[in-house]
């Protein structure tokens, strides 16, 4: 017999209305000097984020990489609009990834992907 949990798994959640969804910000950054791998960079950011802000707090940032826009030395991060400054502060702590020394330049902070692309 199926239990209640397995039935509810088949159900789809209704999409939240836009007013209740979390507001996002996109941050476009450039890594100067060295070319680095996206996965390594993501791993490093999350590691430092957990160390500085703690797991409980870091979850609220809803930090993600927009992978299709991460090309060459440019990376696009997505986060909650309330924690943009926290993410920028966090970037200040990243100085090397796998022995490669890097410098981070923040290009743009925007609410839409359209303006980030431009």
């Amino acid at each position: 017999m199926d239990n209640a949990w397995s039935k509810s798994d088949k159900m789809k959640l209704k999409i939240l209305p836009s007013s209740l969804r979390e507001k996002k910000r996109y941050i476009k950054i450039e890594v100067l000097e060295e070319k680095i791998d996206l996965n390594e960079f993501e791993k490093k950011i999350k590691e430092i984020g957990r160390k500085i802000f703690g797991e409980f707090y870091f979850g609220d940032f809803s930090l993600k990489f927009v992978k299709n826009l991460c090309k060459n030395k440019f990376f696009v991060l997505r986060c909650s609009h309330l924690f943009v400054q926290h993410i920028l502060f966090l970037l200040g702590f990243i100085e090397e990834i796998n022995g490669k020394k890097i410098i981070i330049k923040v290009h743009k902070i925007s609410g839409t992907l359209k303006s980030i692309k431009s």
């Binding site: 920028l88 502060f89 970037l91 200040g92 100085e95």
Partner: peptide
Amino acid sequence: NKFELKDPKILISF
């Protein structure tokens, strides 16, 4: 050295 320089936006965020 040059690797220790920080973007102005990072300094502002603090």
